[in-house]
Design a protein around this nucleic acid. Structure first.
Lengths: 232, 232
DNA sequence: GCAAAAGTGTTGACTGTACACCCATGT
DNA sequence: ACATGGGTGTACAGTCAACACTTTTGC
């Protein structure tokens, strides 16, 4: 290593996804400072002097959204283009978090507005304009999530336990914008060892229909064979 | 963001993989400074004050190994555990580079020893001990490469153009440690649009055998359906 | 009873795998 | 001629997608 480390700040930003009313949504916080005051932005902040990156992501989530992250959390990508923050050089390590639907929009700790936004609305005119390069980060996070649904059991992180196979199926349908055949989906999931574990109880159907078996997340880390998105 | 950015250095490390004699190898450089003097380490260094992360990775490769990277280069993961560099707090953005076999071990620009090491030897007693958390970084890079061979046309980055389908097949066989059926492999690759493009010439066989058609890399970015590693 | 949702069975198309066989070259 | 590796054909088995059908609930 050469001996001239330039001054670069390191932050962590979190793309927190959840499912609300059958739509994939991302949590954004309204900024109260320049630059990009009043724009929506991802929760995040500086990494502490003695803080691991993963711990920092968990802390930012807890501080800015009140989420004590039980769900899935993984590192997404690092963004370091020189001009991405107009104030100073910032390298941001983005994280992807997945959680079951939360009761309410989670007010920010420091009083900022926080809300869920359906990911399809982000590019559209009636949607919000995100600060910095956060549109790209969200897009990357959504794409990562959509892709990893195929070959990991990550979809279960969107479901409150215990959940039904219909709940799990709706995760795929919302994330991919497709509809899946319930019988085939059921067979597929149950044939993957430890994807889900039966809990031995049934749900109470809301408004008709046979009660469904309940499941919780299993210990599988990969899906073989994968649940592929496009058949052609 | 809170207003106390701690002092953190940002570096880029590169896991450069290639195929040599049918084995997957990683390029390592012998350190000439403490800490970890005389240990082998990944090529890397500080990110420049106005340098994008990708550009920095390309620069480190060029400076430390003489590689003007034509091959595949992608961001791998970021490592930021507080104690990972004993001198100071360093967050390292690791990159994964894939190149065809290079003629010789590429001496380092600043005179350091550089050499290829088969990835299987890294954990073993006769293999080298890597500095810092580089064993983990290499392991992550190898795992990423092995995984992405399944669903991207990345394998072709290991082949000098023009290449034969046998060359391409040997990439998979070396990376996965399996042997693949040549006829089936051929059909699989050719049935994926734009994975490889025929060049309209044939190779001169070395030591007997029918000449093989030659191909170059196509424009595909994904493989549908994927070329799955384990059939059961 | 009827609608709605869960769950089972079945079939036909497709895909992957194994392997026999032919082709074109070097020695 | 024979060995070697490239390339084609084929047949069996497993998997996937579509959809008919049964089960169990709310109204």
């Amino acid at each position: 290593m050469s001996p001239e480390p330039p001054a670069i700040s390191v932050t962590v930003d979190v793309v927190l996804l959840t499912l609300r009313a059958g739509r994939l949504c991302v949590l954004v916080i309204q900024r109260d400072e320049e630059p990009f005051a009043h724009y929506w932005a991802l929760p995040g902040g500086f990494v502490g002097a003695d803080e691991d990156l993963d711990d920092s992501a968990r802390r930012q989530l807890a501080e800015e959204t009140g989420v004590t992250t039980a769900g899935h959390l993984e590192q997404l990508y690092s963004y370091g283009a020189p001009g991405r923050d107009p104030r100073t050089r910032v390298v941001s390590v983005a994280y992807l978090a997945l959680l079951p639907n939360l009761p309410q929009p989670e007010p920010g700790r420091r009083g900022q507005q926080a809300r869920w936004w359906p990911v399809e609305d982000l590019g559209s005119p009636d949607g919000p304009t995100l600060a910095f390069d956060h549109p790209r980060i969200v897009a990357d996070g959504v794409e990562r999530a959509r892709g990893k649904l195929e070959y990991t059991p990550m979809a279960a992180a969107f479901c409150e336990e215990p959940f039904t196979l219909a709940d799990l199926r709706r995760v795929y349908e919302a994330a991919w914008g497709v509809s899946l055949d319930p019988p085939n989906f059921r067979r597929k999931v149950l044939s993957t060892p430890d994807f889900v574990l039966p809990v031995g109880a049934v749900s109470s159907p809301r408004g008709g229909g046979r009660p469904a078996q309940l499941y919780r997340r299993g210990s599988a880390t990969a899906l073989y064979p994968p649940l592929l998105r496009r058949s052609v």
